[in-house]
Every structure is written in structure tokens, then in C-alpha cells.
Design a protein around this nucleic acid. Sequence first.
DNA 1: CCTTTTATCCAAAGCGCTTTGGATAGGTTA
DNA 2: TAACCTATCCAAAGCGCTTTGGATAAAAGG
Lengths: 340, 340
Amino acid sequence: MKLKELAEKLNLSQTTVSRALNGYPEVNEATRERVNKAALKFGYSANANARRLAMGRVGAIGLVIPADSSQRFGPHTAEFLAGLAERLSRDEIDFLLSPIVDNDEISVYKRLISSKRVDAIIVSGPVLVDERVSMLIDANFPFVLHGRTNIDRPHAWLDIDNQGAFYQAASHLLDLGHRHIAMIDGLRGFTFSEHRELGYRQALSERGVEIDPRFIVHDYFSDEIGFRETQRLLSCTPQPTAIIAGSMMTALGVSRAVRNKGYQLGKQVSLITHDDVFPYLNASNMVPSMTTTRSSMRSAATRIAEMLVRVLDGEPVDNIHELWPVELTVRQSSGPPISG
Amino acid sequence: MKLKELAEKLNLSQTTVSRALNGYPEVNEATRERVNKAALKFGYSANANARRLAMGRVGAIGLVIPADSSQRFGPHTAEFLAGLAERLSRDEIDFLLSPIVDNDEISVYKRLISSKRVDAIIVSGPVLVDERVSMLIDANFPFVLHGRTNIDRPHAWLDIDNQGAFYQAASHLLDLGHRHIAMIDGLRGFTFSEHRELGYRQALSERGVEIDPRFIVHDYFSDEIGFRETQRLLSCTPQPTAIIAGSMMTALGVSRAVRNKGYQLGKQVSLITHDDVFPYLNASNMVPSMTTTRSSMRSAATRIAEMLVRVLDGEPVDNIHELWPVELTVRQSSGPPISG
DNA sequence: CCTTTTATCCAAAGCGCTTTGGATAGGTTA
DNA sequence: TAACCTATCCAAAGCGCTTTGGATAAAAGG
């Protein structure tokens, strides 16, 4: 069923039917109703391609995702997508996932833009000076960045206060009396990771605590890394008495290594984790319950979707950015240091 | 830059340029090269909407995902998407995620079909008699099902042997001498979940072991459910001496509850988990290492993408289905029952 | 040397929609 | 009653591409 046929059945022109369907004012209410009813009855729904061709709009936003078997497409991405879906479904905006081909990320973005299949793009996992971001600004293509870069040309972004998170975590541990604090976070180069390290260093420096480079780990978020690195850390002299973990997955590995050594969390080793809030992995239900810096990835994504809609509505991007604070929740996995 | 302009610059017709670009034979090799070079130089790339409108094809496949904050969009979905991306990137096929609106799943599918935005659909999480599947068959719309249904009209699917998985797990536990075996699996109604219960029941029945309905749990896959239900199970009389968990997330909760009670995995309580293979959560690295039935969700997705391409190439769906066996890997979390 | 084939290329007709620039008829105003 | 709105509808022109049905010229066949 196409517009023309529907129009014929109704003895109306395509113009009128189109207008009736799209809510234009210059059509009689009675007519509109008649059209709507008929559309429903015949199961008519506009061909999206034709519609977009005519309008120059798309009704979809783009995301570029890694296509190899890397760790990068993990539970964080899933939460993120779920959050986007939550908001975008309201406007019937779909999203287009474009896998990276030939490891050439930037050209996937370019393809996405020039193929006109998306109205906007969401960029995540930025590095400090992100080529994608400057390219998108240059191309004047609408996008929202999840995270931050050092590029100070105006663009829309949302980030959480990663520096503050690790600063708070480290400060709390210092308050408790810890002096040997390690951190196991995400890969070096990513802004979030660098910011977290900054927060960690800041806290330690403020108290005059020396920073031991062996205690700073950057790697993938996985239980295995958490386990392995904690084992390594616990064989250092002096041993760290506290660890800050960048993700729940990492924390699982850390816990395991700590237990494995016969230690208890919150006693010989304290642990603070950054919690992106996975519905299937709850920090407060852990045993012992986990001290965390918490910020829902899903909510952030929902908000980003919101911002994207604003960008698409033409709002100037200068004002579209948000920095979300991160709150420390003290639970049982952190306590004053005791000797092993 | 549009086709017309490019054609003008080259002093050729749109037809020829289009054909040159799309690899049709009726164009001189020299001309083709000239065209390709010019296209590259001017950064020309066909407007996808126009292209699709003209061709009636899309270059994207559809997936419907839950948009609420349910548990359903979790790490399994993420792995699945990653697997699809791995294969579809080769053919530059994108995927379109359509969130469910108003909780009306079937109409999202219909919208997806009639809006002509995707060439095919991937359906996952089928129930025993799945309305979506019969609808898609009726509509004669290409799709591949991840999982199985009882609908015996021809369609393409890939499933793992869920029944066999739980049958093997239960049998192994019975072999070890367990007589009180519980299972904590996914939500009732889903085929995979029903199949697993079938396997479990079959194993127990074959050995004449009575089935205790309190020992069969169906719920979301999460550590919290695993924890809570295990606590409940361990307060039953008689206590189960073994638990089969449907997912790694569940297993984390189970482990925690077991430890919490002062028990050891593989001693007072044995645990076998179905492992969908998450890169960030490794069964063999757990302590104690985890006995699993293992089947990579990611590989399955990659294969499904492969099948989808075949479906799109017009191969009859009758022969496009695969049932993947699941292998039991015995590790330390399962052992003979000992008294608490 | 003329006819037939083959290799290239092109003009124009869609694909299904939105939107521009009127038409038409009934109602208002003076 | 004539001149002017207003509300409602329509025909036709794109949107940028692919594809059909030739045209043209060079090569081959007789």
C-alpha cells in the first residue's frame, strides 16, 4: 500500500493525504480523521526511504562500534545502548550501529556522514585529543560526545566527573589511614582513564603521599585483569593496603585475588570500585558490600539522547554540555588498614 | 557532490557513472577507472536513501530491543551484537536497533517491515509459540531466529542445545552422587529456559530421582537473584548439594551465597554454570574454577549473521538451521557431595 | 562493400514521498 | 452586488539514485 493508492481509495490527492498524516493545519479535521482511519485500516505506513529522500532527514542516529573481538564492546556499551533506547524510542528514532571496518574508525564516521543515513552521531570513548570530534566539528555534523576531550571548539557533550570520583575514593582511603593505594583502571589514552588517574594523583599529592608507579595499572576492564594485577600488587613490597578499581568487572577479579590470598576485603585490603550500575551486578549486595563511586551509565545515555534531540532541533551546542558529579558511597569493602 | 555533478565533471552520463561505480560490465575499464578516481577525489558517495529508494534494498538489518529498564538488555545482548558486527561489517551491512514502544513488540516488528528500512530481521529470545515468528513468516519477510520455537513452518534459525546442556550438567552431578540438585535459570516461557528445564528433568527422571519443585527457579539472570535464591535453597530441608546456574551473572550470586554460608564450592555445594563466554568474565579463572556448559554467544551471532546473508541471497530457508552442541567442561566447582 | 554483432554510452522513466504554487468554492466586507 | 478573504484541496516538481530501452560507432562476418 503506497500513498498514491491510499489517496485514490479516499478520492483525495496525495498532497492532502500526506498533509493529513503529517499533521499539517491546512486540512479539514473531518478529512484528517477519515485519512487516519483509512491508513490504519489498510496498514499504510510511509516508506521511510522515500520520506527521507524527500525531506532530507533520516530518523536515525549513528553509533560506531568496534567489530573485532576486542573487549571494547562489553557491558558498558550494552548499558549505554539500553539508555539511549529508553529515550529515543519516544521519538521513534532508531539507531544505526556501524561496525568499524579495516580498523579505520575515522573513515567509518565519514561514510556514516556522507551516506546520509543518520541525522546525528553519538561518539563515545574519547581520547584527550580526539580526531573524530574535530572531524565532526569540521564537517559541521550534529553529534553528542559521551565523555570529554581537550578540543575547545564548541560541541555537545556529557561526562561524569571521573577525576572527582577517583579523587574522592583516594581521599577516603587516605582518611582511613591508607598510605599504599593502588588503582586498576581502563586503558591509557582514554580521557576518562586519564582523568581518573589525575584525581588519584591529586589526592595523594595533597597529602604528601608518594606515588608508586607500580601501583598504577591501565588495562581492559575484566575480572581476569583485576585478578592478575591484584596478585601482582599483593606481591609487591610494600604491599598496597587499598585498591581502587575502575569497573565492577575489574572489582570481581580483585575480590577474588584478595580472598584467594586469605585476606578479607575491608580488612587487610580495602577496595573501592567505580560502579556504572549494571542491573545484574549490584554493589550493595556483594559480600562484603562494596564501597563505590557510582554513576549510572544508562541514565547518562538517556540524557545524551535527550541532548541529541535538542541538537537536532537546532539548539546551539555551546550550551549543551553537562558534567555529572559522582557520589562516593561507603560500604563494607573499605576500612582502616590493618596489618596482614 | 551528487551523481549528476560528478557525471557533468566527467562529461559522462549519470547512467555510465552509476554503472562504473557499481561494477557493471558494460563500461570501459579505462572509463571506470577515471570515474573511480574522480569519485575519490571529490569525495563522492551515493546518497543511501536515494539508492535504496531506487533499488528497493536497504543494506541494514533490524533488531528489536527492549526499551524499558528491564534486565533484558544485558551482557548477553551486548555479546550478541558484537558477534553480528563481526560478520556484517564485511558486507557493510549496518543494523538498526528499534526499541519497543508502548510495550507493543509485534507492532514494532510490523513498523520495521513496512517502513522498508531493513532487508531482514533478527529475532531473539523466542518463546515456545512465538507470535513474531509466525507473523514474519506470514509476511514473507526475511529473518533468522536465534533460538527455536515450536512453529514448524520453514524458517531459518540457530540454536544451541540447551536441553543437552542441562541434561549433561545434571547427569554429571548425578554421577558424582548428588541427589538434591537445584537449577536457577532464565524466565519461564522462553524456549531456552523451557528446554533447559526439560534437560534437567530428563536427567533426574532417568535416574529415578524425585524432582522437588522448590528446587526449580526461573527468573532474570543477575547476581542478586543468584544470591537470594541460593540463600533460600540452602535453608530448605533437605538442602540441595548442587546447583545449576543458567548464566555467569547468576553464578556470581550463587558463589557469594555459598561462601557467605561458610561453604566451599565443589565441596558442600557444587555449582555448574552455563557460560555464554564473556570476554571479561572467565570461568576457568574463577576460584575455584567453574565447571561449565559452554557456548559462545558471540560466535553464534556471527554465524547467524552469516545465515542472514544467505537468506538475503535467496537461499531457501528450509535448510538454513543449525543446532549447536554444548560441551561440559568439568572444573573445580563441582565435586562429590559431602555433608556440611 | 554491406550487414550483423559487440562494446560503450545515454536519455528518460521510475522509486514513493514532501512541498511549492496555485485553483476553487464558500464566506465576509463594504 | 462586487471585491476580497479564508479554508481546503490539488497538480506537478523535485529529492538522488538505478535501470530500461535504445542509440552510436567500431569490429567482425560474408
